[in-house]
Amino acid sequence: MNSFFKYFSDIFHGVKSLLIGMSVTGRYFFSPGQIVTQQYPENRKNLQMFERFKGEVIMLHDGNNQHRCNGCGICENNCPNGSIEVIPAKITGEDGKSKRVIDKHIYHLGMCTFCGLCVKNCPSNALGFGQEFEHAVFDRSKLTKVLNQPGSSIIKGVE
């Protein structure tokens, strides 16, 4: 007899639980509330990334096309993947002493894992993270970038 009642209570509880489940999906069907789906290519214009977003490593340049990198190579040493190559150059300053400056700061985006060690360890805060995230290119070699802009020079007094 007990199993007889259990049979019916099982049916009752089963149907009840199914109805509760259906009420959730049914509720969302009629009132979806806020939809978090991003309409990506359409919302490109007003797409705002977070300010700390690690899109790519960039060298910070000011309005006069000047940066703070002196080519010390600490970022290169800190990079776990070898995605940074610093090619220094020697120039002769106004005082006649030759000093070390950056010739090319080469950055292999394809190898970068965005760990942030280069930015964190840069003694002169020359590096930063850019907001660009659309990195897809057809040729892998295009992922290798030179971070110091052509014609840029070091800000005085940073060395």
């Binding site: 999906t25 969302y28 509330g33 939809i35 978090v36 789906t37």
Partner: peptide, 10 residues
């Protein structure tokens, strides 16, 4: 479309 609405999608 129906399942999208139920799943809070577009």
């Amino acid at each position: 479309k129906v399942c999208a609405f139920m799943q809070n999608r577009v």
